[in-house]
């Protein structure tokens, strides 16, 4: 497949998300959870736990993991991988901070949208 050019789109500001908190971004049928760690890192996963689709944006964030609100799986914010003995991964998204702006690579998502 051809590499798509990057297309970073602003989805909000750092200060929109509390530390150790998350916000959702809707993109067509996909909901993306944007996380802000205690250290002000910004990471993005699809808002769907690999276990039973629990909304990860609603979990408790600690270190660089989130604990799913439904059955307590611990998911890495960086890779989306379930930690410990659990297996599976949530999809992770390219996201970056430009100053105070949070940006997502929009092309990456439009790709997804076609397959979704």
């Amino acid at each position: 497949m051809n590499a798509m050019p990057e297309n970073w789109v602003r989805v909000g500001r750092l200060s929109d998300i509390p530390r150790r908190g998350a916000r959702r971004v809707q993109s067509g049928a996909i909901t993306i959870a944007i996380f802000r760690t205690a250290e002000d890192r910004i990471l993005a996963l699809e808002d769907k736990c690999p276990h039973k689709q629990g909304p990860l944006s609603q979990g408790i964030i600690h270190g660089d993991c989130v604990t799913c609100p439904l059955h307590n799986w611990v998911i890495s914010l960086e890779t989306g991988q379930a930690q410990g003995p659990d297996e599976g991964a949530a999809m992770s998204f390219p996201v970056r901070l430009e100053g105070d702006d949070i940006q997502i690579d929009f092309n990456f998502q439009s790709d997804l949208r076609k397959t979704a």
Partner: peptide, 13 residues
């Protein structure tokens, strides 16, 4: 902030 999505890219698209 807990209750509304931060943004809706569907609209922008």
């Amino acid at each position: 902030h807990e209750f509304v999505p931060m943004s809706d890219l569907t609209l922008e698209a």
